[in-house]
Design a protein around this nucleic acid. Structure first.
Length: 110
RNA sequence: CGAGCGGACUGAACAGCCGCGGGCAGAUGCGAAAGCUGCUGUCCGAGGAAAGUCCGGGCUCCACAAGGCAAAAAUAACGGCUAACGGCCGCCGGGGGCGACCCCAGGGAAAGUGCAACAGAAAUAAACCGCCCGCAAGGGCAAGGAUGGAAAGGCGAGGUAAGAGCUCACCGGCGCUGCGGAGACGCAGCGGCCAUGUAAACCCUAUUUGGAGCAACACCGUGGAAGACAAAUACGAGCCUUGCGUGUCUUAGGAGGUGGCGUUGAGCAGAUUCGGCAACGGUCUGCCAAGAUAGAUGGCUGUUCACGACAGAACCCGGCUUACAGGUCCGGUCGCAUA
RNA sequence: GGAGGGGUGUCCGAGCGGUUUAAGGAGCUAGUCUUGAAAACUAGUGAUUCCGAAAGGAACCAAGGGUUCGAAUCCCUUCCCCUCCG
C-alpha cells in the first residue's frame, strides 16, 4: 500500500516547479513528477493573489478532499503539486476531482 | 400608519456516511524504563470584527543604586471610572436638527520668534482717493470708497470745523468684585476701550513615557568547529616519516527539537428591592470545553427557511478604527388619523 | 506574526505651505545633418477630466475626511507596493 506524504520544504516546491510537467485548467494547475520512492507525495499552493485567508483555506480543503478521492487510483511513485486559482474557492470538490482525473489521464498517471 | 433617532443582541438550522486537530480513559504490541506507533470509546474544536497594528497593559530579555534635570515623543476644557489608556461615562462651552438626538485635536496668540503669496495706500502697520481748517505753505481726521481670509471692536444716537469709545444705550471681548457650583463655568455689578489670523509652524504650560519584542526568551543539541587532558606512537590504509581520523572533558552554537503555549486570569455567564445619574463597583451562583507548527472545522447526500454578508485564532488581555446580507428586542421623537 | 519605508505624466523622478504653466530627463513627433540610418543639435508633444459657442471656470499629485485665507506638501482613516527580523 502506497503511503501518502505531504511536502514541507520550500525546495521541494521549487524542484517541482522547475522540473515537473504542468497541466493547466481554469480551476487548478497540476505539476507531476516521477519519484524514486514507493509512496505518493503531494503539496498544495494557494498564492496570495487567489483571495483572502478564507478563500485560500477553502481552496486548500477542497483540493485535499478531491485528492483523497482520486488518490485511491493513483499508482505509487509520483509527486504532485496542486496550485489553486481564483475560481477554485467557488466550485465543489467533485468538480476538482473530475478535473484532476482528466488531467492525470493526460499526464499518463492513470 | 408613515418618517426618523438612540441602545442591546444575533451572524442559517437539522439528519446520515466519509474525513481532520487536541484532551482524557481503556486494552493490545514494542521497550529495561521514560515512552512510542496504530486501534476503540468519549469530550472539545475560529470571530464580532479573529482584520488594520492605531493606543494601553501583562509577560520576556537588555539597560539601570535612588532621586532630579535635559532631550525626544504623545495627550489637551472640567469632574469621575479603570490595572492602564490617546478609551469610557457624566458635565461645561461651541455648532447642527422642528424634535428624539448628533458632531467638535475644545489649553495658551497679553512670554517670545516665524509666516501671512497675490491684491491693496497700508497686513500689525496708515493715509491713496477723500473730509475739514487755511489764499498758500502747512496742519487736523479716520466717517465713506476700493483690496483682501483678515483693515484698528459692531451698530445706533449724541457730539464736532471735519471727525474719533470723545460720550451714552445695546451687543461682543478683557480685567476686577460678589453670589451659585466639586469644577470647567454661569449670573449680576463695576471699570477701562484694547489686543488680526496661524500653535495638525517653532514654542509655552500641565500630565505621561527607559528600550526592544514570543521570529522575545530559556533549555536540549547528530555532524562539524575551538581548546584542554590522557596516551606516548596503540589502532587504521603493505612498511618508514609527516599529516589525518579514532578516546574523555569543556566552551560557544548552525540545522532540527522542547518549553514559552492553552492558562485561576484586570477571566466569562447569569442574578440582584445593593451603591452610583452613568461609566463602573459590591455581593451571590455557575463555568473554565480551540491550541495548530506548512499550520486542524472539510466533502457528499437529503430536508427546511429569511437562500446565507464581512470574513479564519498563531503569546494573552482592555479599547479604538475599518469591513459587513439580513434578522430580533427595548426606549424616545415628529407628522397624520381615530377615540 | 512583528518592525520600518514609500505611492507625482507612458517610464525614471524633483518639488514638501504661497502668485500655478507642478521642475528636469527618458520616450514620442517633426526638422537640420546624411546616399540612407545611428548619434548630435533645434523645435514641438499629453499632465488629465468635466462644464461652456468662446473668453474662461471647477475638480485633480493612490482614495476619503480634517486644519488653514490657501494643501501635492501638515494631521487622521483606508487601499496598494517594497525592505528587514527564523
Amino acid at each position: 500500500m502506497a503511503e501518502i506524504v505531504k511536502f514541507k520544504e520550500n525546495r521541494d516546491y521549487r524542484r517541482m516547479y522547475r522540473m515537473g510537467n504542468s497541466f493547466v485548467s481554469p480551476i487548478l494547475v497540476i505539476y507531476v513528477m516521477k519519484n524514486r520512492n514507493k509512496n505518493i507525495r503531494y503539496g498544495i499552493t494557494t498564492g496570495k493573489k487567489t483571495g483572502n485567508a478564507v478563500q485560500r483555506n477553502r481552496s486548500r480543503r477542497i483540493i485535499k478532499a478531491a485528492f483523497d478521492q482520486v488518490s485511491k487510483n493513483v499508482p505509487p511513485g509520483y509527486d504532485f503539486v496542486f496550485v489553486s486559482r481564483t475560481k477554485t474557492s467557488y466550485v465543489k470538490s467533485t468538480d476538482i476531482a473530475d478535473c484532476m482525473n482528466k488531467q492525470l489521464k493526460r499526464a499518463g498517471v492513470l
